[in-house]
């Protein structure tokens, strides 16, 4: 194998990577905002005693967890406009699709966190006269949040990686920009390698932080 690497090309086209990184960032932030807000609501609804909240939340979560995200993205971009007349741009479609998908997982993290708190805590809070809102805010959530943060950070790392799926909607995020660059330079080995390294450099600290927090709170709990 006498492949001669030409790394200079990465530096020469660095603007392309930065441009892609900005779009990847936009997708991430948009999807994160949707995923967190919708996910937290869905998680609360699913733990609710009220059937008309619990049931739709359960259907949503199970539906999004049991269909491929690629299909969800394509459906939102190509099928939704025909059915509803709602035509979103490709970046918005990508962010919304990844956000809706992520919400299902955030909801489950949230629910698992609440359920992991011993029932005795609820009993004790009620016995001193707390109402549902007070016991959630003062007793359950402060304990549950600690257990939720490490898996939420993990979900954040997953979400960053999922943004590469935006390339199928021709969103000019990192992967799509890289593919464009390869079409011009015929240097897939250098470009794909640099792309993988770039993602690793972004995501590894996130995963590491999540593990450290888990261990820190595990010891103190």
């Amino acid at each position: 194998m006498g492949y001669s690497w030409y790394w200079q090309i990465i530096w020469d086209y660095r603007a392309v990577f930065f441009r892609g990184a900005v779009v990847t960032g936009e997708l991430t932030v948009g999807a994160l905002a949707i995923g967190l807000t919708l996910g937290l609501s869905l998680g609360l609804f699913r733990s609710s005693r009220i059937v008309v909240l619990r049931w739709p939340a359960a259907v949503y979560i199970e539906f999004f967890r049991s269909t491929p995200i690629l299909v969800q993205l394509v459906w939102i971009y190509y099928a939704l406009p025909i059915l509803s007349g709602i035509q979103m741009g490709n970046v918005t479609s990508g962010a919304v699709g990844i956000g809706l998908h992520s919400a299902a997982y955030v909801a489950e993290i949230f629910r698992a966190g609440i359920n992991s708190i011993d029932r005795g805590q609820t009993d004790a809070a009620k016995s001193i006269g707390m109402r549902y809102g007070q016991l959630m805010r003062r007793i359950i959530l402060p304990q549950a949040v600690r257990r939720m943060i490490p898996p939420l950070i993990n979900e954040f790392a997953t979400l960053i990686k999922l943004t590469t799926l935006g390339s199928v909607l021709a969103v000019d995020e990192l992967l799509h920009e890289s593919e464009n660059l390869i079409n011009n330079t015929y240097r897939p080995l250098e470009v794909y390698t640099a792309l993988a390294v770039a993602f690793a450099v972004i995501i590894f600290p996130v995963i590491y932080l999540s593990q450290r927090l888990e261990r820190y709170w595990g010891v103190r709990a």
Binding site: D118, G120, Q121, D123, A124, A125, K126, S127, I128, G129, M130, R131, I139
Partner: peptide, 17 residues
Amino acid sequence: ARVRARMGMVFQGFNLF
């Protein structure tokens, strides 16, 4: 909740916060 608050309760498992 208001009625409950007038009775104290102590549990087998303590259930301190």
